[in-house]
């Protein structure tokens, strides 16, 4: 459980991950079409992309909730993509998930303290010890255990339920926390409270987090690195300070330009058309049908992720970053 993690070995290592679903007329839906990235211990990686870009599918197949079509996933040196059954269940205890709708992590018929205890009980913690820790955890996520321990989820506000879901997720000290849009459904003031809670937990517990969001401001604020997903492939991955400050991929630029309220000193990059179907992705660069910079080469040659500065970019004609 408490193996020390070397600085070099990534905590999460995803290689050429693919997830295809059976599609119309025999053409598979390529929801995730070859994704590669690492997450270092203690790091927070943001994954951004539009609806249907494959964010949720990527997470589900990465965690073997819906096994991938191809590719490998290592968590803390263990190849979880080759595990099955009990072995897989054991390995998955190192990972906890948090969703946009926190109710989906909690059983509405259970008092919140019992929901928090459950993963600890599964990990062999005694009942009294689990309850003692659960009360501490409720306090840790900013709620008063006297008031909240015996409440049911429906008696709490959205922000409070999300706090309880977080308490449950960190109860077993998971090596990796995976969050799918955990603050998207919250009001701004509550969102700020939860963002701060994540930051505090990170500082105190050194959590490693994969954080999915469509809100680039939130990702820029919370994450160390960011991966930009488009139609099941990565466009750009690298430090937030680089990728979201001076994007090299036109899609990243378009996403950034769409963030409301950003002061602009130039024309926005506006996307043409619509997201193509993942069962008939464009040849060459998957982004080319909407890319304002597309050229002939983009239709014939798939751009590979290649180093640009401290980041990796999949584009034949990346935008230059000023040094």
């Amino acid at each position: 459980m408490t193996a020390t993690l070397s600085e070099q070995r990534p905590l999460l290592s995803v290689r050429d991950l693919k997830k295809f679903f059976p599609g119309p007329a025999g053409a598979p839906i390529q929801a995730v079409a070859g994704v590669t990235f690492d997450v270092q211990p203690g790091e927070v990686l943001g994954i951004v992309g539009e609806t249907g870009s494959g964010k949720s599918t990527l997470i589900r197949s990465m965690l073997m909730l819906d096994p991938p079509t191809a590719g490998t996933v290592d968590i803390d040196g263990e190849r979880i993509s080759s595990l099955r059954g009990t072995k897989l269940r054991e390995a998955r205890q190192n990972v906890q998930l948090i969703f946009q709708d926190p109710h989906s992590c909690l059983d509405g018929r259970w008092r919140v303290i019992d929901s928090i205890c459950e993963p600890m009980r599964n990990a062999g913690v005694s009942r009294t010890e689990a309850r003692r820790r659960a009360r501490k955890l409720i306090e840790r996520v900013g709620l008063d255990p006297h008031t909240y321990a015996s409440k049911f989820p429906r008696e709490l506000s959205g922000g409070q339920v999300q706090r309880i879901a977080i308490a449950r997720a960190i109860a077993t000290s998971p090596k990796l926390l995976v969050c799918d849009e955990p603050v998207s459904a919250l009001d701004v003031s509550v969102q700020a409270q939860i963002i701060n809670l994540f930051e505090e937990l990170r500082r105190d517990l050194g959590l490693t987090i994969v954080f999915i969001s469509h809100d680039l401001s939130v990702v820029r604020h919370m994450c160390d690195r960011v991966a930009v997903l488009y139609l099941g492939t990565l466009c750009e991955v690298g430090p937030v300070t680089e990728v979201l400050q001076q994007p090299a991929h036109p899609y990243t630029q378009a996403l950034l330009d769409a963030v409301p309220g950003q002061a602009r000193d130039r024309e926005r990059v506006v996307l043409k058309g619509e997201l193509p179907s993942p069962s008939a992705p464009p040849t060459g660069c998957r982004f080319r049908t909407r890319c304002p910079m597309a050229q002939e080469r983009c239709a014939v040659e798939v751009p590979e992720l290649s180093p640009t500065g401290d980041a990796f970019v999949a584009c034949h004609f990346p935008m230059r970053r000023s040094a």
Binding site: S157, G159, V188, S189, V190, Q191, A192, Q193, I195, N196, E199, E200, S217, V218, R220, H221, M222, V240, T241, L244, V259, G261, Q262
Partner: peptide, 24 residues
């Protein structure tokens, strides 16, 4: 003022704690 300050905009220092409004 509090509503505006709670937004994690691109002008805020990354990873800094955001000013929040207690309660509801």
């Amino acid at each position: 003022r509090a509503l505006i300050a709670a937004v994690p905009s691109f002008d805020v220092t990354p990873r800094s704690l955001l000013p929040t409004i207690p309660g509801r």
